[in-house]
Simulated scan of single mutants.
Amino acid sequence: MPIETATLIDVHAHVRLEATNGAAGVHGPEHGVDENGLPWYRVGNYRLSGVRHANSPFTDPELRLQRMEKAGIDFQVLSASPLNYFHHIDVPSAVSFCRRHNDALAELVNRYPGKLGGLAALPMQDPMAAREELERSVSELGLWGAATGTEFAGEPLHSPAFDPLYEAFVKLDVPLFLHPAPAGIDGPPGDPALKRFDLDVIIGFAAQETIAVATLIFGGVLERHPKLDVWISHGGGAAAFTAGRLAQAGMKRPWATQAMKKDGAFEEAMARLWFDTHLNDDRALALLTQIVGPERLVFGTNFAGWDQPEDGHHGAVSPTLADNARRLLRKMPAPIQAKNQIEGGTP
């Protein structure tokens, strides 16, 4: 079913591509089986053991489609695994990986155009190289935008060095998906307390997502690029829960811009962002919906990941989520696109 008519569109689904093995040079990625028959996957000095790579929905498109059908998912938008962002390695290796990944992803989604779309990987440690790869991936390969981590070697999300990249997203009319990576994969190790109980992917991800929301708003990214569309995984982490404190900071702290000092300014800016619904809790989703509105939510599952429920997704799914995804991805049916353009609405 093409995305224009799909009733359930999953925008939070990662893929690992066999064609990228060794694409980042000494950093990998690579995979195999140990002496006990357990699968492993290596990125840099990080080794993931006991999680199947080959013959899994992450790597086998036929298994993916079977699992999508079982879960009632009509269409999926694929992005690189967080293990494969490579935002902290040397620039040539990162560029090499992203080019090979995006070529392979374009080939995959072109084989299944009625079921799969794709987002480019970008070498964010070099903003201009990232811009060039975005332009190539969208204009030449036909990918629908890009997905990156939230932290990079060199510059933070709000750095003016990224303005040319954000301008390219606007010019190409495609969105940016932000999703964290575990600390220490190919960069700084992070807080050692997060190594307990897998907290790096439970609390650590939520912290990175919340920081990304605050950085985009307080750092003026949304002010400088009013037509930029960014969506953030896992409902933006703890952004909804901490929105009151963030809003108060925007009004009271000495670094805050004049635009943040009026009542409701932070909430208004937060409602400019998009968020996927993969929150594992209807109460959290209700709070996020109250703050940003239902029109800024898109359906996501972390497909085939540890936190996707056995029945495919959490709770009831609003039919408006599919239309939201189409608006975000610029895939609305042609008559509706034309109507929006005439009326000046979001394409």
Rank of each mutant, 00 (worst) to 15 (best):
K339Q: 15
S79W: 09
F162I: 00
A238K: 01
A247I: 06
L288G: 02
E62H: 05
Q66V: 07
I291Q: 05
D229K: 14
R99G: 13
A80H: 00
P164T: 04
L194N: 05
F266E: 12
V51C: 01
E167K: 12
E18R: 10
L63G: 05
G235V: 08
H31I: 00
P188M: 03
L83P: 01
A286H: 09
L321E: 00
V91C: 06
P188T: 08
T20E: 01
L143A: 11
A13T: 14
E155S: 14
D34G: 04
L157K: 09
L246I: 09
L285S: 08
T7Q: 15
M68A: 07
L141V: 04
I203Y: 01
W144Y: 03
V170C: 13
F58W: 15
K70C: 00
L285M: 06
R136M: 12
V298C: 09
D307S: 13
S56W: 06
P2S: 14
R196C: 03
V317A: 07
R196I: 08
P29W: 14
L285Y: 10
M1R: 07
S96Y: 01
V95C: 10
T301S: 12
G244E: 10
H225K: 02
I89V: 15
M68W: 03
E135T: 15
V91Y: 00
W40V: 10
D311M: 08
N340V: 02
G184Q: 03
T7D: 09
G118D: 08
R52T: 06
D276F: 12
A238S: 13
H225G: 01
A6V: 07
T277Q: 11
A71L: 09
A94R: 02
V317C: 15
A334H: 12
H12T: 04
R196E: 10
R330S: 15
V170S: 12
H179F: 05
R42A: 11
E62Q: 13
V230T: 04
I89H: 02
G236M: 11
L222R: 03
H278A: 15
L141A: 06
P61N: 07
K227L: 07
H14T: 07
D282S: 15
E310H: 14
E35F: 03
P335R: 05
P309L: 10
R16S: 06
L329R: 14
G117R: 11
E133S: 04
I9W: 09
D281F: 00
L288E: 04
Y46A: 15
A212H: 00
H88N: 14
S96L: 02
T320R: 10
Y85C: 07
G235W: 07
L65I: 09
A249K: 10
Y112T: 10
D90R: 05
N84I: 01
R64T: 08
S137Q: 12
